[in-house]
Amino acid sequence: MIELENVTVYYPKAAEPAVKNINLSLEAGEFVCVLGPSGAGKSTMIRTINALQPVSEGTVRVQGESLASMSEAQRRSWRSRTGMIFQHFHLIPRLTVQQNILTGLFGKRSSFVNFAGIFTHAEKKKAREVMAEVGLSQMADRRVESLSGGQKQRVGVARALMQEPDVFLGDEPVASLDPGTARAVFHLLKEVHHKQHLLSLVNVHDVTLAKTFATRVVGLSNGEIIYDGPPAELGEENLETIYGKAIHA
């Protein structure tokens, strides 16, 4: 479904690439957790998949078509099928839970209706269903800044669900949450993943979470993939290669 072929990304003025020669093939139904220390290139890699980050070398292919050769409209259409959740939620302040969730539809509707802020009954009904799915039914009219971290991330998940995505990307979605809430959010992600038979790719720092929820683990260090396999085979030796000796500290 998604293929990364020799993907390298250089940031301006950086001597070393953020990711180098990444080769990865991802299929629907996989729940992939990406492990690696800060600065390993996890976020960069994940952002190349929905073209938020252009690649310097190599190719990202979506169902056989290169993202680089797509027009801007095609790339937007691809992004509209790629639900992304962020570490810091990236919700729009001063808007309600429901309004934030409805913005997930922006990539699928005409500019005019988006600018006018018009939503049909069916769209609002869908938003209510999504809110119920993530446990936010009672909070539709609350402004997002009044929510807790876990609730905010649920709004983030709901916004992504509103897109009816084929792919779920999580850029450290639980890094700013406490362990209990992080686990609850992962349960939610996994549940949605199963129900909608998605391809999910989630960056995470917590090895236990990755081992518990992932069907496949990708380990990154210094911008390179150094582990790609099932979580059951991810041993201490692999973790030491990914994180260095600091894993035992």
């Binding site: 937007r76 992004r79 790629t82 992304m84 962020f86 919700l91 729009i92 922006f106 988006n114």
Partner: peptide
């Protein structure tokens, strides 16, 4: 303005102008 919501709008496939309008105006209003 916080660039996070702008990035979120880009990630849902919103166009540049629409994304800017919806992600920035509520912040600065």
């Amino acid at each position: 303005a916080d660039p996070g919501p702008q990035e979120a709008m880009k990630s849902v496939g919103a166009g540049r102008r629409l994304g800017n309008l919806f992600s920035i105006v509520p912040q600065i209003w």
